[in-house]
Amino acid sequence: MLVTLNDLMPEAASSQGAVPCCNVFGIEEAQAIIAAAEELNLPVILAVNKDMVDLAGVESMAGMLLPMARASSVPVVVHLDHCYEEAIVYRAIHAGFSSVMFDGSQLPLEENIRRTRAVADAAHAVGVSVEGELGSVPYQEGRDHIKSEFTDPEEARIYAEQSGIDVLAISVGNVHRMTEAGSPINFPLLDEIESATSLPLVIHGTTGITEADLRKLKTRRIGKFNVGTTLRMAFGNAIREAMAEEPNKFDKQYFAGKAIPALKQEAMRVLTLLAADKE
């Protein structure tokens, strides 16, 4: 079933677990991730990132993902990830995305509030949830213009109160696109942010965080963890192995099909890790 972040985040943020937000780049990833969520009977978020927006456009991605989300036996959010342009956010809303992220993290605080507020007002008018970011989560590679800046707790309070967002992405040592875990998380800073705002919080760069820290973080007021690199590695490595084993074959769909089980297995690992531990 298609849902919004507002259907999931209040409970997730107050529980001992969280919901993974998985980047999808095609139908294979979407099928594998939804299948993993259905097998575990857990909700999941499918995220469309800037690379896919630039390649395919939000309308094409909505056309692919929305029917799959609606047909799923578990709650599925179709979410627009980091978007810096309001025009694209509005196109995504019009196309049917149930959730959007306007990323004003590179802007001065007042401008970030003003522009995010306009997006939130438009999104909420049609029942779409909104994520914003304060501070700036850096990238290990790929987007050198993105700054690295911890979230300021007092600015987080002001931004949360005035921007109209539903969930707040924060920077506490997490880093996008790391291929190995090891990002040092600033837990004292997280304490201050949690004291400053009652909004559900979001962590980007999950692949770069150690399992021990993820187990701590999921028990805090973090309702959503963005996951991309570990899923891409599982899928890509499986395709590479299959192609090496059968060098005379060349059909994309054949090799993607060979790799889907590895991707589903990794998605199940992530879903299980971030879910509340069973007593």
Rank of each mutant, 00 (worst) to 15 (best):
M1C: 12
T4V: 00
L8S: 03
M9G: 03
S14G: 15
A18W: 02
P20E: 02
F25I: 02
A30G: 01
Q31N: 14
A32V: 10
L42E: 08
P43F: 07
A47N: 10
V48Q: 00
D51Q: 14
D51A: 13
A56Y: 14
V58P: 07
M61S: 11
G63R: 00
M64I: 03
M68C: 07
A71H: 03
S73N: 10
H82F: 07
H82P: 04
E85D: 13
S99F: 15
M101L: 10
G104F: 13
L109C: 10
N112C: 12
I113W: 11
R117T: 01
A120K: 05
A122C: 08
A122G: 07
A122N: 00
V126I: 13
V126K: 13
G127I: 12
G127R: 13
E131I: 12
E133P: 05
S136N: 15
P138R: 12
E141Y: 14
E141R: 12
I146M: 03
K147R: 15
S148E: 07
T151W: 00
D152P: 08
D152H: 08
P153L: 00
I158R: 15
D166C: 03
A169W: 01
L199A: 07
V202G: 02
L217E: 04
N226T: 04
T230R: 11
T230N: 08
L231D: 01
R232C: 08
F235P: 00
A238P: 02
R240Q: 15
A242Y: 07
M243T: 09
F250W: 07
F250A: 12
Q253E: 11
F255T: 00
F255D: 00
A256H: 01
K258V: 08
I260E: 15
I260T: 15
A262M: 04
L274F: 07
A275Y: 02
